[in-house]
């Protein structure tokens, strides 16, 4: 009996080496441990042994059974592992295929610049305002200290709708509308479309965008204007930019200023893009003219303020290195997708 057991064991070990898949394991399990399996049959024969032999053989037989079970289990795990690996091997894909994307669009570069400028002034405590594009002559000129027949009207040749209504050539009328509607302190920026009778070329467009700013309070000074706009230039163009204020003329501010920033390309040394002067003009500004304050019913003895305005196209052209304003309104996707 003992020999028979050893034989069975030897036999299954050698058969187990031939196992190929889970079916083979199952077959062996039935062959040896099944109801009619070799081990089961041997177990049944235990009763025929002498009581002296029985415990020893019984123990041996049980141990052999466990060993076979373990052996088959180990084989099963091995095969399963191999199977899994095999299956994964068959699941190869080309990971260089394009992603299935929803695709993100782009903001227009002018709006990108407007938002950036708005954010800077919002963080400095300014509030956003807006006003009509089709505007009364009064708000656009007269209330801004540009009466009829004033030579400054030439600088802004406008599109008129009627004698008293025109397409605004500047965002400045928003200043007046805001001040008419509220008491100081005022601190606003307004952005939007403006129109001038300019024939289209690489630097002119009959429609363009402006950013307007206004701050009115007790004791606001020209120094404050320089302070705020210096912060703006540094945030917009970088801390290392130099800012220059020089006299300029706009009838609704006095003293009036033109604001220059050191050339973005050459840093001030002088190059083609700045006309070899090292400076780029970026905006007009100044202390609000007392006549403008009087027109909206503010007392210029009590209140003072500053205003500024700049062209979004110019800023965007400088910032992104764009050399033709027409690109903004052609809306060529190859252009738009770069932003």
């Amino acid at each position: 009996m003992e020999n028979k057991i050893k034989e069975v064991k030897k036999e299954i070990v050698s058969k187990s080496n031939l196992i190929k898949d889970l079916k083979d394991i199952e077959k062996l399990r039935v062959e040896y441990l099944g109801r009619k399996g070799a081990v089961t049959l041997l177990l049944r024969k235990l009763g025929t042994l002498s009581p002296k032999e029985r415990p020893k053989i019984g123990q041996l037989l049980n141990q052999t059974k466990r060993e076979i079970e373990e052996l088959l289990k180990t084989k099963e795990v091995e095969i399963e592992k191999l199977d899994k690996e095999k299956r994964l091997q068959g699941e190869g894909i080309d990971i260089t295929l394009p992603g299935r994307k929803l695709g993100r669009g782009t903001a227009h570069p002018i709006n990108l610049v407007l938002r950036e400028i708005e954010e800077i002034f919002l963080s400095l405590g300014f509030k956003m305002e807006e006003g009509p594009e089709v505007e009364l002559d009064y708000y656009n000129f007269e209330a801004l200290n540009i009466p009829k027949d004033h030579p400054a009207r030439d600088d802004q040749d406008s599109f008129y709708i009627t004698k008293d209504i025109l397409l605004r050539p500047q965002t400045s009328p928003v200043q007046i509308r805001t001040m008419e509607n509220q008491k100081p302190p005022v601190r606003i920026i307004a952005t939007g479309k403006c129109y001038r009778r300019d024939a289209t070329d690489s630097t002119h467009s009959p429609m363009f965008h402006q950013i307007e700013g206004l701050a009115v309070d007790k004791d606001i000074t020209f120094g404050d204007l320089k302070g705020i706009l210096t912060i703006f230039v540094h945030r917009m163009f970088g801390e290392d930019r130099k800012v220059r204020f020089r006299p300029g003329y706009f009838p609704f501010v006095e003293p009036g200023a033109e604001v220059d920033v050191s050339c973005l390309l050459c840093g001030g040394k002088g190059c083609k893009s700045c006309g070899y002067v090292g400076w780029l003009e970026i905006m007009g500004a100044g202390v609000v003219h007392p006549k403008v304050l009087e027109m909206v019913g503010y007392d210029p003895e009590e209140y003072s303020g500053f205003a500024f305005g700049m062209g979004a196209e110019r800023i965007a052209m400088l910032k992104y290195g764009i050399n033709d304003i027409r690109l903004f309104f052609e809306n060529d996707l190859r252009f738009l997708k770069q932003f």
Partner: peptide, 23 residues
């Protein structure tokens, strides 16, 4: 201001009153 020179006027920051609703 013009003859004195804008560049000689010191940049300052005005007293900030509480920010209004920005947007």
């Amino acid at each position: 201001a013009r003859i004195y020179g804008y560049d000689k006027i010191e940049p300052t920051l005005f007293n900030t009153t509480i920010a209004q609703e920005g947007k």
